[in-house]
C-alpha cells in the first residue's frame, strides 16, 4: 500500500469511481416511497396523452454526468433534433426520474421562437437512477431517451 500524495494527484476521478454497483442515498427527500420505472412510464403517458413513444430515439440527446458529485445538484442538458419551424417543432420536453420520490422533474414548453430545442437545468436525484427525456413534437409524436446517472455516496456516515 503506497499512499504518497504525489502519485495520486492525477487520479482520474471517473476511472476511480467506476468501482460500481447500486446505491441508496437521500438528499432532501427523506421519503421511503420511490417512483419505479413503471411509474415513470405511466407519468409520461399522462403527459403525452398516451401517444405511442419512440423509445431510445436518436432525436433526443441527454447530456448528464455519468457520475454526479452530489445528487442535490446535477447539471443536465437536453437537445432535441428539430428545425423548430412553425410546421415542425418541439412543443414540450418532459424530464422524468425513475427513482425519485415522484417521477416528474420539470416540463419545458417550447415554441418556434426558441429557434433551437436545447435546454439546460440542474436537478435533484436521490439515488442512482435513470433520467428520461420525453419530447412531444408539433405533429403529436413522442420521442424519448434515457440516461443513467450514478449518484455518489459520501464517506463519513453523514
Amino acid at each position: 500500500m503506497t499512499k504518497t500524495n504525489e502519485n495520486m494527484v492525477r487520479v482520474d476521478r471517473r476511472e476511480a469511481l467506476k468501482v460500481a454497483g447500486a446505491s441508496v442515498l437521500a438528499i432532501g427527500f427523506a421519503s421511503t416511497a420511490h417512483a419505479t420505472p413503471e411509474d415513470a412510464v405511466k407519468y409520461i403517458g399522462e403527459k403525452t396523452g398516451g401517444a405511442a413513444a419512440t423509445e431510445g430515439s436518436a432525436k433526443v440527446t441527454i447530456k448528464l454526468p455519468e457520475i454526479a458529485e452530489n445528487g442535490a445538484t446535477v447539471p443536465i442538458t437536453v437537445v432535441v433534433d428539430s428545425p423548430m419551424t412553425d410546421a415542425d417543432h418541439v412543443k414540450h420536453i418532459h424530464l422524468v426520474a425513475d427513482g425519485n420520490p415522484s417521477p416528474q422533474i420539470v416540463s419545458f414548453n417550447l415554441t418556434p421562437g426558441c429557434g433551437k430545442a436545447e435546454v439546460s437545468t440542474r436537478i435533484r436525484l436521490g439515488k442512482t437512477q435513470n433520467v428520461i427525456a420525453a419530447a412531444v413534437m408539433s405533429d403529436g409524436s413522442v420521442h424519448t431517451n434515457k440516461q443513467e446517472v450514478k449518484v455518489t455516496i459520501g464517506g463519513c456516515g453523514g
Partner: peptide, 16 residues
C-alpha cells in the same frame, strides 16, 4: 487531508 488526500473514501475523493 494529509495521509489520504486524493484517495477515495466511499465515493468521496479526499481533498487536501
Amino acid at each position: 487531508h494529509e495521509d489520504n488526500a486524493a484517495i477515495l473514501v466511499r465515493a468521496e475523493l479526499l481533498s487536501q
